[in-house]
Write a protein that binds this DNA or RNA. Sequence first.
DNA 1: CGGCATGTTTCGCC
DNA 2: AGGCGAAACATGCC
Length: 256
Amino acid sequence: VPEGLEAEIWRQELALTVGRTIIDVWVDERVAPPSFVDLVAAVTITGIRRSGKVVLIDTDGPTIGLHFGMTGRVIVDGEARIEQLEYASGLDRPEWDRLRLFTAGNFAPAVRLNDPRRLGHISIDPDLSHLGTDIFDLTARSLGEALGQRRTAVKTALLNPRVVAGLGNLCVDEVLWWAGISPHRPANSLDSIEAELLADVTHRRLRIMLQRGGSTMGTLSPEVRRTCPACERDGSPLQRDRICGRTSVWCPGHQR
DNA sequence: CGGCATGTTTCGCC
DNA sequence: AGGCGAAACATGCC
């Protein structure tokens, strides 16, 4: 699940923990920096932020970065707001826990990071300076400038965190479908009108999908991606291609 | 068993 | 120098 939208949902959920003091820490040392436990023992959570697909837990000590990889998810106070991750198990197995933060007065861990595939990791004071514009800060100008410098496929550019931070494979296909732009188009072939349309569509679609529950709630749902039915807009058969090593679903009819 | 999976980093090649 | 694509990472599921 973890695209920027899921990270945003977890950011909102983690806001419940602001003000609490961590009284115990358990971590899978394979996915955390050395001496992580010592660095965050007894700190108080002061705020939760998000940058692209990274969730940041600010404390009166260091900032904890949560990176979800393909299958990581957050459980706050024992309740998973995103119960099942597409392309991941629906199970909640304790042995997949990578982090548990306990706070005073809460029996269940206040924060769990559960990640079967273990492509995610935990960081301390992460350097996010290389990230491009965040999904919710996109403007026509920033997007146009970022795309204009690249001649790779526009889909590849949009997946690059240095160009836009927070877009994943599903959301990229979704916004290109809504903008009517082929994922194969060279990024620098978009004119300013198309860049403006793309920035506008991205903003609007992501807001709607966020409200509906995340990156699987678009027109190109996981079901649609699997079955490739007729395009909802113009009836052309949806096409599945491999772009940038990722499965890409698009409509050759209206995406040009 | 083979293939596939919502992500990121690294390596090697231009 | 720096952009680009493929491979690698690790594991579960169909």
